[in-house]
Amino acid sequence: MTTAVAAAMVVAAAFSAHAQTGANAGAGVYAANCAACHQAGGTGLAGAFPPLAGHVADILKPADGRIYIGKVLLFGLEGAITVNGGNYDGAMPSWQALSDNDIAAVLNYVSNAWDNGKSLPPSFKPFTADEIKALRTPELTSAAVYALRAATAGGGGSPATATAATSPVSFTADQVTHGSDIYVDRCVQCHGDTLDNGEFGGAPLNGSYFSKHWGGGSVAALVAFMKAKMPPDRPGSLTDQSYAALAAFLLDANGYPKGDKELPPDTPAQQAMSLKRGP
């Protein structure tokens, strides 16, 4: 073996190891921050969180697609969208607290995972930390990102009209009581007795934080997130009725009016219930 060939093999091995490290980094970021909603296989949750499998490559085909998807991660997204024939009307939070390296890594991961890489445009180049840094300015609202989606050719920004959440939310006092018992038993240590003062630093479940993350979508998005994340030691372990009761407790705590009809436990019915407040 010549010195030149040996050197080339060393360079190739180093490049392969670097690529594998990057893929592992992106997979780790995804597992820690994204999989709870979009699922480990990128399939999403029907009526709540859109799939990334079979969709990310479509976003990246237009010239401005990579700008749009980068800003989604940085600033969030709020508004009705249609993805792969399914309608979604929720609110994705901002992930700008992640580093530029982490956001670039997770974008590279979802661009190639679940066979997305087979449909990427030939001109696709991996996202870089410098590219993400440049996208941080100017800072956008999630509503502005939604407008950017609608303007991005192939971005799937058409409003979801057929099954978009249109009905007011409904839950009963009995559900609130049941949900309160569940909260005290399973949630209070992380989120606190006032829903924003937990011993272990759980996110606030009331006030402006709740409104920003959930006030623009449907009940289904809120419940699906709870099923995917809560309780932390056994996500999804409660019954559908218990998750509905817990949601009723949170909605009551955030000023939504009680009624004489229970909050339903099934996703299609929850998807029809909007958390948007009147003017």
Rank of each mutant, 00 (worst) to 15 (best):
M1G: 13
M1S: 13
A6W: 04
A7M: 07
M9V: 12
S16N: 15
N24F: 03
A27R: 08
V29S: 03
N33D: 06
A40Q: 12
A46Y: 03
G47M: 05
F49H: 06
P50K: 07
V56S: 05
V56R: 01
D58I: 08
G70E: 11
G70D: 10
V72Q: 05
V72H: 01
L73S: 14
F75H: 02
E78M: 04
A80I: 10
T82A: 10
G85A: 13
N87F: 02
Y88D: 09
D89L: 09
A91D: 14
A97T: 12
D100G: 02
D100R: 00
N101L: 04
Y109C: 03
V110E: 00
K118T: 15
K118N: 13
L120Y: 03
P121W: 00
P122Y: 02
K125R: 10
A129M: 07
E131I: 06
K133P: 00
R136I: 10
P138C: 06
P138R: 04
E139R: 09
E139I: 12
L140H: 04
A144S: 10
T152N: 03
A153V: 09
A153R: 04
G156H: 00
G157C: 05
A160L: 03
A162M: 07
T163S: 05
P168L: 09
V169C: 06
S180V: 06
S180K: 09
I182D: 14
I182R: 11
Y183V: 01
R186L: 10
C190V: 09
H191G: 04
D193V: 13
N197M: 05
G201S: 08
G201D: 08
S208P: 09
G215I: 10
G216E: 07
V219I: 09
A221M: 14
F225M: 09
K227Y: 05
S237F: 02
D240C: 00
S242V: 08
A245T: 11
A247I: 05
A253E: 09
P257I: 07
D260A: 10
D260Q: 04
P264T: 15
P265M: 06
T267R: 07
T267W: 02
Q271K: 11
A272T: 11
M273Y: 01
L275K: 01
